[in-house]
Amino acid sequence: MLVNSEQIIEAIIETIQMVSFSLLFSAILGIPLGILLVVTRKGHLLENVVIFNVLNGIINIFRSVPFIILLVAMIPVTRFIVGSSIGTAAAVVPLVFYAGPYIARLVENSLLEVDPGVLEAAEAMGATPWQVISKFLLPEALSSLVLALTIATIGLVGASAMAGAVGGGGIGDLAITYGYQRFDTITMFITVAILIVIVQGLQSLGNILAKKIRRR
């Protein structure tokens, strides 16, 4: 084996950093976008064809670019924001552009599952649009939103491995530079095993949390 345990621990920390920061920023970006996608659609709370179509189009564009290409295409933007295109911080930028629109779609799906009757009741009570969103739409969808964010987080773990390949560090970087390029099978196995454990852990955590919110 060509790597030592310190390198592995460092890689795990880098991955956790990449995933948590990009999750934070992409949630900040994606959740409001998802809400907008729902409430501006036809027949909904704040129906607005222009906003809906523009958002819908932009999100589709980002969603259709493969991450590996997005990663390279985003380099000028990354340089502008972070000042460098190499390193863990730099990897966060393309990850956010990847996961933000993804989360927007997942949030949209969760919110569309909320019983329209509940929203009708909200309107009958004279709730303002903001109240309908904050007191009816989001609480009713919370459990499903947690599951959606779990999926997004796991997606980010995978994507962060790719980001690692262009200098972001993390477990993926380790796997490619040692496991793949230097034929170190053991490192490859260990890194994959670590990824499996992380994904399993995240999914279980998400399931437990969602279940707790649903209380059944």
Binding site: G117, V118, E120, A121, A124, G126, E140, L142
Partner: peptide, 22 residues
Amino acid sequence: EVREIKKNIGMVFQHFNLLNSK
């Protein structure tokens, strides 16, 4: 103004439309 008036009109639904999360 309509929102204010709605507070004077209660509504009961066929499928109850309660919040299951509350």
